[in-house]
Write a protein that binds this DNA or RNA. Sequence first.
DNA 1: TCTGGGGTCCTAGGACCC
DNA 2: TCTGGGGTCCTAGGACCC
Length: 432
Amino acid sequence: MFALADCNNFYVSCERVFNPMLCGRPVVVLSNNDGCVIARSEESKALGIAMGTPLFRCRDVIGRHGVAVFSSNYPLYGDMSSRVMNTLGAMAPEQERYSIDEAFFDLSGFRRFGLREHAALMRRTVLKHTGIPVSIGIAHTKTLAKLAAKAAKKDPSCGGVLMLEGADRVRRALASTHLEDVWGIGRQWSLKLALQGIQTAADFAGMPPALVRRLLGVTGAKVQAELQGHRCLPLELVRPMKQTICTSRSFGRNVFSVEELQEAVASFASRAASKLRREGSTASLLTVFISTSPFAASALRREASRTVSLPRAADDAMTLVTAASRVLEAIYQGGHPYRKAGVLLGAIAPKNPPGESFLLFGDEGEGRAEALQQVMEQVNLRYGNGSIRLAAEDSRAWEPLCRHISPRYTTSWEEILRVPSAPQAPPAPAHR
DNA sequence: TCTGGGGTCCTAGGACCC
DNA sequence: TCTGGGGTCCTAGGACCC
């Protein structure tokens, strides 16, 4: 049997652990740049604040009901995530970390303890050790386990754990699940299937497989088979190597000049380099993209991108920053209010593959660049990220907004001492 | 005024190979 | 009149996930 453990309203729960005054109050967490609502407490959901709502569209509700608003605090959420994952992993070692707030487990070995009982113990332990509430679904396939976890969240009577075993129990769960709540079925496919009269997970599971294959391809066919209890998605115990690594941001304001874009792109390339090095990989393809807001007047709108292949696979900031800077120069065009840029690395390969390759036409700089990069990493490790960086990255005038950020309670000695003030609703727009 | 970031997989079509 | 069969690789676009 597979289990899925899913943290409830994860980002909101992280904020509440360190600021219990938030419990019982409506809370939302915003996307980068304070743009959209990406996490909501139950109280906020009850107020009708939908996932992904732009902040400016729900300011009224937020003001009227005293909703607490937070910018996202990824150092905090990432650290809390590893605490939750480590706690769970200690109690069920066959673990696949699926996302920042979810993990799958193979619980087959725990039959004699009672699967439901063991899951309930996992849940209690995580709550006690980290303060984060989780819901756990148990079933024969991953897709059914996801469905069970969702149902466990909705129904308070099951105490956060729901096991789907037995054809009848599964059938009832499928019948009471809307199609768009099934893992793997998004908006577009729901609409497509609604035209065929398909409303619930049970309807979908009962469709002729050939029709599903024709409408949704093999991906949809797998979802259907999983709902019928056939395992198509195995537990992935080791995370496969990333195929692309991307660092991109929306800017806190319009950026017009190539100089400011250069600084942003240099920072992204440098960030991407450190992600790459953490993976122990190198990249041979580099893409730079810049764009205005997609909501800008069409005369001002512009999207541009270009990919280059690097003369040799690289993982150091200086090579990637230099390459990115050249690409940006080539695609930049003045007169547009740019709001976003990014660097995407591709053709990723392990750094020291068996039978290591070398450059035919020498490269004496190589060893020095590597040594310099390592020293920079050590300095940043000891004195804090950003203590030393390439001059090209400086100024940061483009930095995204985060007006409602909470302290990094678990990863910063300075910030842990900051007393959380009762968070306020964001300042009302000037005209109100 | 104000709208995230980082991924994966599949499919179709085109260019190419013998 | 009539024009093969079996592949690979790449790219762009579209769907999905959190």
